[in-house]
């Protein structure tokens, strides 16, 4: 029997957005998927030492994850995303992710797919190319693509439905607005999430709502916003504005997009209490908890008054 190709996926950045699709697609074409572990101290230290000081914390963590995978698999999957069409651009760090990694680890092979709709690089074609590199059977690749898309869609739907159920509860509800790679990362967002859960507060996630709907809501906020991920985040704020008791903006230092968009959003939503938490390498848990505690006291008091 032929040995299976091993493909590693760093558990950071776009992993939290596309994990279901990637895993199903790669397994469908007969590839062993290796995931890097949940973010831990070693990974962060390694990532920090590999990257430029000024780069944002999630991308530092990404390099740490990639380093972990370097000698454990044949390929590492790295997407290069530029845009999904007009006014659907993404943060510039995704433009050069592949090239940076390629320069950091010159001896490692990377699987890259390039999404750049304005230059006619569509996801379907790019995934086909990637699939055919690993598996010659085009029918298998096609089937794998469509089935994994369907699975991803169903998974998204289940998340959205879960969120709708959360919305029905009578407890205090807080919307956490953050990029998925900040909020689901064990080192970055989990402190906040765990604390909120401890306080028995229902958490709504900004990425667990219908993306198209979120984008249409973001038009209320700003007509010239052109970042896709920021649109989805901000759209959720304006969608849930009436339903939640408070909004927590969670961003990592120094996130370029959030520095503008979150600031503007805080200025524009007036009658909902909001807090802007910026996570960096030295965020102390105690300080964070104090801030969250006082924020929760405020929203509790507000609710009791009504």
């Amino acid at each position: 029997m032929r040995k299976k190709v091993k493909v590693g996926i760093p558990r950071s950045l776009l992993y939290y957005r596309r994990n279901v699709f990637w895993k199903k697609f790669l397994e469908g074409i007969g590839v062993n998927v290796i995931l890097s572990p949940i973010t831990n101290k070693d990974i962060i230290e390694k990532g920090k030492s590999l990257s430029i000081d000024e780069s944002c914390l999630p991308s530092k963590i990404y390099f740490g994850h990639a380093y972990y995978l370097v000698d454990k698999c044949d390929y590492i999957l790295v997407p290069r995303v530029s845009n999904y069409g007009k006014e659907k651009r993404v943060c510039m760090k995704f433009y050069g992710l592949y090239d940076t990694l390629n320069n950091l680890f010159p001896d490692t092979k990377f699987l890259v797919y390039n999404i750049d709709y304005l230059n006619w690089n569509f996801e379907f074609v790019e995934m086909m190319k990637l699939g055919l590199k690993l598996n010659r059977n085009i029918f298998r690749v096609l089937w794998s693509y469509f089935s994994s898309r369907r699975k991803e869609k169903n998974y998204r739907l289940s998340l959205v439905n879960e969120q709708i159920n959360v919305l029905k509860s009578n407890k205090l509800k807080v919307l956490v607005v953050a990029h998925p790679y900040v909020i689901y990362d064990d080192y970055l967002g989990s402190n906040v999430i765990n604390y909120l859960k401890e306080m028995d507060i229902q958490i709504l996630y900004s990425d667990r709502m219908d993306r198209k709907e979120a984008i249409s809501y973001s038009k209320d906020f700003s007509k010239t916003l052109y970042w896709l991920y920021a649109k989805e985040n901000i759209g959720s704020v304006f969608y849930y504005k009436e339903a939640v008791d408070g909004v927590i903006f969670l961003s990592s230092f120094p996130c370029g997009v959030d520095s503008l968009v979150n600031e503007l959003a805080i200025r524009k939503i007036e009658n909902v209490p909001s807090i802007n938490i910026i996570l960096d390498e030295s965020t102390a848990e105690a300080g964070l908890q104090t801030r969250l505690e006082s924020f929760i006291d405020i929203i509790k008091a507000r609710r009791d008054n009504e």
Binding site: M92, K93, G96
Partner: peptide
């Protein structure tokens, strides 16, 4: 951001 990418 783009120049940080370039810098590495």
């Amino acid at each position: 951001i783009p120049e940080i990418t370039a810098l590495s």
